[in-house]
Design a protein around this nucleic acid. Structure first.
Length: 292
DNA sequence: GAGAAAATAT
DNA sequence: CATATTTTCT
């Protein structure tokens, strides 16, 4: 309980894995034929077709994520300008769902093609930039490396469950870590880890009951160095003014690349549910998709 | 003030 | 693209 504590706890309930998400590692990949089917590459006049290596795998089966977000925001004119242009984007919050998609993309791509660019494209999550993926990928790799030492070697000794799973990277732990990744030279199929590092063993949870639950609030205006949470409290607005709370607007000038990526018009808004008990807190993560 | 996550720079 | 460093948030 140091850093996130309240945070991750709130998230935990919010992002609780749905049955669909808990799919075993036996996730069926896209059939090769399908991949090939998607691999329809015409021959444009001048297409920077990457090296003869890359079978652009289709997008993984999109998850039935509930896309529900308030479309409100309109208002008034205050924000006549839709800044988007060269405006610093807020900060990307990697929610488990988003991370899962990331992992899925990497998994389906294979280590070889799992480069930021490709991953980003495959994810088709709007608002997601290459830098975001790159940064996360970096961390993810480190996590994998760390995990290697524990899963192998010790042989999954019962005792050394290690904090590596639950204690450390909460986010990574929540996502189904593909069996491979540990090393390319291994057979992906067949034997998988004795156990999935699904975060579970949580015994100590102090109920700090924090009102803050919302993440990802975009402040298009001046994002100065305020000190405290900027997220909207839904609990009790001091000013008596009810704010929308978390509303993100992110429009990015889509520059199309001639890439062979069958972009799927994916609108990804994640999670929006779980009003367990009386505390109805909804966290809206990831920005709405304008379009691709 | 420390630690972690994301961003940014090399 | 990968890694290192810096910033920002909890």
């Amino acid at each position: 309980m140091r850093e996130e504590d309240s945070n991750w706890f709130s998230r935990w309930e919010e992002e609780l894995p749905s049955p669909e998400e808990l799919m075993p590692l036996t996730q069926s990949l896209i059939t090769p034929e399908l991949s090939l089917a998607f691999d329809i590459r015409n021959h444009p006049p001048n297409s920077p077709q990457p090296p003869p290596q890359p079978p652009p795998p289709p997008l993984p089966p999109s998850q039935p994520l509930s896309a529900e977000f308030d479309s409100g925001e309109l208002g008034s004119g205050s924000a006549g300008d839709e800044p988007a242009r060269t405006l610093k984007r807020p900060r990307l919050v990697w929610t488990p769902q988003l991370h899962k998609r990331f992992v899925d993309a990497v998994a389906h791509l294979g280590i070889k093609n799992a480069v930021p660019k490709t991953i980003m494209q495959l994810m088709s999550v709007d608002g997601l930039t290459r830098e975001n993926v790159a940064s996360h990928l970096q961390k993810y790799r480190l996590y994998l490396k760390r995990m290697q030492g524990i899963t192998s070697g010790g042989g999954g000794a019962a005792g050394s469950l290690s904090a590596a799973d639950a204690a450390t990277d909460h986010l990574f732990a929540s996502a189904p870590v593909p069996p491979h990744f540990l090393h390319p030279g291994r057979a992906p199929s067949d034997h998988l880890l004795p156990f999935v590092p699904v975060a579970a063993a949580l015994q100590h949870h102090h109920h700090q009951q924090m009102a803050a639950a919302a993440v990802a609030a975009a402040q298009q205006q001046q994002q100065q160095q305020y000190h405290h949470r900027q997220v909207g409290h839904f609990g009790s607005p001091p000013g008596g003014h009810f704010e929308h709370g978390f509303l993100m607007r992110q429009t990015q000038p889509v520059h199309r690349m001639g890439g062979p990526v069958p972009n799927q018009p994916a609108s990804y808004v994640e999670d929006l549910e779980s009003a367990t008990g009386g505390g109805g807190r909804k966290v809206l993560t990831l920005f709405p998709t304008g379009e691709d």
